[in-house]
Amino acid sequence: MRVVVARSGGVTGIAVRWVVDLGEGPEYSDWIVLIEACPWDDEPDDPPAPDRFLYLIRANGRRVTLPEQRVQGPWRELVDRVRAVGTPERGRALPPLDDLDATDDLDTADNADTTDDAARTRGDDRPNGPRGSDGPA
């Protein structure tokens, strides 16, 4: 199972993404508890605030968009843990988030990582897809 925390915005405008691929290690169940403790269905509808970070979080087939002011409680625990384990990847050369869909499905035996590592950050073999479609809005 893959956990993604994508942070955009801020006055720098430089996006940062942390990706963690979970295997069947001893910490796996801890991650599931952490993920399931988050209120995924309570997506806030706050008006955007200038220069605040915008977080997109995906795990176990779910996704949510949160302004940084809402990254509290279990969200903060999850984000802090992903940031602690994952290696930050910055900039717009990152693959579009939708390209991560294939491995972001509900955890099953088919796509569960079989390594013994509880958490393995993504290596350099990540796909380098094109950036988001360009052109006048």
Binding site: G9, G13, S133, D134, G135
Partner: peptide
């Protein structure tokens, strides 16, 4: 404008 970026991140790329 030919290079306007369409994205869902950063509230539609306001810093881009």
């Amino acid at each position: 404008m030919d290079d306007f970026v369409v994205t869902t991140e950063d509230y539609g790329g306001v810093h881009i």
